[in-house]
Design a protein around this nucleic acid. Structure first.
Lengths: 262, 262
DNA sequence: CGGCAAATTGAGCATTGTCAATGTCTGTGG
DNA sequence: CCACAGACATTGACAATGCTCAATTTGCCG
């Protein structure tokens, strides 16, 4: 299905190294994990709530979201995932999936068995800590989302979501206009913020008319980064990223066009 | 099962053993952790957002909540903790607290240094896994809370919160009326559900007038457990508790009431 | 018997949801 | 190259859930 020759796990390693430091051995052990690659079409499920998982899943390209459904069928998106993210890692220790994971844009993923992951963690405690740390960051993000849907109005919620995705795509804190990859429809933004797509639409229109942002099919341009953070009541602390301004990386967010190319 | 020599950490061990299994050595290692005990008065803080933590904290009696504040000063409660819960464990790997922890009722806590916790985890991988698993359950609960505030109305939100606390206090799935410890004021319920105390009050009044529940200063009596679960769209799966029925009891009603499986 | 925190009530209003229709863009097949 | 389908975005009118503000009452505790 896919070329598994050269280690394609570098996006995962890069992401882990944002918050953890590895020796060469440890890095190599991670890159040497046995992976089964697969390409997944938009809106397909990677996991469904209630399933028993035996693999976790690395997002090598594209984007994905986690969600749950209520009895009445409305959807709540719980997290958005980008290239390099580890999905379903927690299911190594709690095998029954408590939520579903669905691809947003077309994605390439690598499956690693829980067994293999736990084994490498056992052999290298630093790696176990790094993985644990990732799940803790996920929990921190989830808590911030509780605040977002619980205590902010529509405008704030959407601005906050924009800020989060911008920062996670490596946007610098400089006030320069920048364009980020935007994998979500307005309906999905609604599902992530606890709003309806209609209200999302109206709120985004307001933000556009104020010159805060402009939108394209698969991208959003932020015209005033400081203002957007202010509107969204956003502070990056909860992401537990190392430097205030992405110190080790000087380049801007990858162009939106490239990220969903093919 | 394991009989400790009178360590005060048994509430923690009991809670961990809901989801993990330990050898005698491992249990003993946990009970032997060096602890500093402290009594904390209602509404006092255990941690404040932004602080650097060096200890984690076991709730030996009483209850506590985690919260964050928005710019405008409104509060969102992120979790409620009961006797036996481990607080701030994640700060062992992410030392800067991303939220505050505050005592609800008077509480007794035991502080354990992160160093000691990580050490015992290193010595006993089963323990490390058990601790990791606890943080994963916390994350699962946080995700369910996102759904609660994002996609349920006031009545559903409050019923769901009631169900969660009932189950976590070991209430059986039998439909018998039962009374649970209720450590929160209506204002705090509002902060947990993203509502105002006024609206919480009105909603609870409705639930009372329907005979669903009745309330006392520090307790709630649930008159129709099945109905309450239904109102709250509640399924216990997200708590990742072992048995279909509450604690590790054998007295579970041969439940035809378990229709709520997804 | 005060003093407080918590619960309760009422009136009016605002944000957001609902429903239903219409407009717009993109990719596809003829 | 154009017509068409389908997904997405946009709009309008209206309803409603939940909020604000401001009393007032209740119950606990010293």
């Amino acid at each position: 299905m896919f070329d598994s020759r050269h280690s394609s796990l570098t996006p995962m390693l890069d992401k882990l190294q944002l918050r953890s430091t590895f020796s060469d051995d440890e890095s190599q052990a991670l890159l040497d994990l046995a992976v089964r690659f697969e390409r997944i079409e938009p809106s397909k499920y990677i996991v469904r709530e209630g399933e028993v998982m035996e693999n976790c899943c690395i997002l090598l390209s594209g984007s994905a979201s986690r969600h749950k459904l209520t009895r009445k069928g409305s959807r709540q998106i719980l997290a958005v995932h980008l290239r390099g993210d580890l999905l379903g890692l927690g299911n190594a220790l709690l095998p029954i999936a408590d939520h579903s994971i669905q691809v947003l844009s077309r994605a390439e993923v690598g499956y690693i068995t829980h067994e293999a992951i736990l084994e490498v963690g056992l052999a290298y405690p630093i790696i176990a800590c790094a993985l644990w740390r990732e799940t803790l960051v996920e929990a921190s993000v989830a808590r911030e989302w509780i605040v977002n849907v619980g205590r902010r109005d529509a405008r704030e919620r959407i601005a906050h979501l924009l800020c989060e995705l911008a920062v996670r795509q490596g946007m610098d804190s400089a006030a320069t206009p920048d364009t980020i990859f935007w994998p979500m429809t307005q309906e999905q933004v609604g599902d992530a913020t606890g709003l309806t797509s209609v209200h999302v639409n109206r709120t985004i229109q307001t933000m556009r008319s104020e010159g805060l942002i402009s939108t394209d099919r698969q991208s959003v341009t932020i015209h005033d980064w400081a203002a957007l953070q202010d509107v969204g009541d956003f502070s990056r602390g909860y992401l537990h990223l190392p430097k205030p301004a992405g110190g080790e990386m000087r380049f801007k967010a990858p162009g939106a066009a490239q990220m969903h190319a093919q």
